[in-house]
Simulated assay, not measured.
Amino acid sequence: MFFNPSKFLFLMTLISGTLISISSNSWMGAWMGLEINLLSFIPLMINTNNLMATEASLKYFLTQALASSTLLFSVILLNHNNFFAFYFPESNYIINLMINSSLLLKMGAAPFHFWFPSIMEGLNWFNSFLLMTWQKIAPLMLISYCWEKNLIIIIIIMSVMVGSLGGLNQTSLRKLMAYSSINHIGWMLAALITGENLFFLYFILYSFLSLSIIFLFNSFKMFHLNQMFSLSNSALIKFCLMISLLSLGGLPPFLGFLPKWIIIQNLVESNHIFLISIMVTMTLITLYFYLRVAYSSFMMANSELKWSFSLNQNNLNLYAFVLSIFSIAGLFLITLMFNIF
């Protein structure tokens, strides 16, 4: 089991908080939804048997409280903007910058990312998956309501650079996935430039590929890179892990390349040549540390232990194969779209 059934109520509250934020017609309602989401995620993070989880929950609360207070202050200023605009003509732009900055801090985009890898290090794989995927929905959708294009382009460049370069010297798999998530935040923001439909496509595929990788990491209790060398299991498991990692990195012809290809095409048509050049170059660096993880588990001459994990091997092989077969199916989808367009 990924989570304790007794915390199912908090999980439902977490989902409802996000839905309240993205469906609210006022900034105050969006702020309330974010607070409900925050207060329901903290109990999911706390583990009395793990001090690192308790420390991570405290760090997360303080960081999110700072972002929430900044957002609330910005909303109050926005309601009195007519008064401030008389004395400060640029007040509307400054308020939008404050709102964008607070939402970027909530999702962990660079340069507001410093809390994200350290908190990921103290969580289990299920909470890490929530932090990497679901907790980004509300801030990303709220940013699309008060879009500051020049700021977002700078954030995209910084996120893809920090996410790719920061993961190079990491031996912790959770920190490596955290920097990978920061890199994908840049691609999600780039998807929002072209439209929300492309963002939803990218987010769904990113969540699915992250789930397939985290499922394998959680099954074998893998948390560090050196543990990958002792992954004594069938070649099918190692092959599925390698396919999922390469697909998450956006290597053609796997499924993860499909949304990146559409983003590249739309940004080129919008004359964002410099932006897409940096994004593609930095993504090649992320493929390097994905390959390092895959190589550690897929070595042909590795030594295997006599004992094995107490897992249902047949079911695990089936689940891993089903999750990775969709990544391989990206070849068919890309070929189909190429023939259509």
Rank of each mutant, 00 (worst) to 15 (best):
W134I: 14
Q135M: 15
K136Y: 05
I137W: 12
I137R: 12
A138C: 11
P139Q: 13
L140M: 15
M141S: 14
C146Y: 15
N150W: 11
L151G: 04
L151A: 07
I153R: 10
I153T: 09
I154P: 11
I155R: 10
M161W: 10
G163R: 09
G163L: 08
G167A: 04
L168A: 06
K175D: 00
K175M: 00
L176W: 03
A178L: 01
Y179G: 01
S181Q: 05
I182M: 04
I182R: 03
T194D: 08
E196V: 09
L198R: 05
L201D: 12
Y202C: 11
F203D: 09
S207T: 14
S207H: 10
F208G: 15
F208Y: 15
L209H: 14
S212I: 04
I213C: 00
L216G: 03
S219T: 02
F223L: 05
L225T: 02
M228A: 03
F229C: 06
S232Y: 00
N233P: 02
N233S: 04
F239N: 07
C240E: 04
L241I: 03
L241P: 02
L241Y: 00
M242G: 09
L246V: 09
S247G: 13
L248F: 06
G250H: 07
L251V: 07
L251F: 09
L251T: 07
P252Y: 11
P252T: 12
F254S: 07
F257S: 09
P259E: 06
W261P: 11
W261N: 13
I262T: 12
I264Y: 12
Q265R: 15
L267C: 03
V268Y: 12
I273D: 04
I273T: 08
I273E: 06
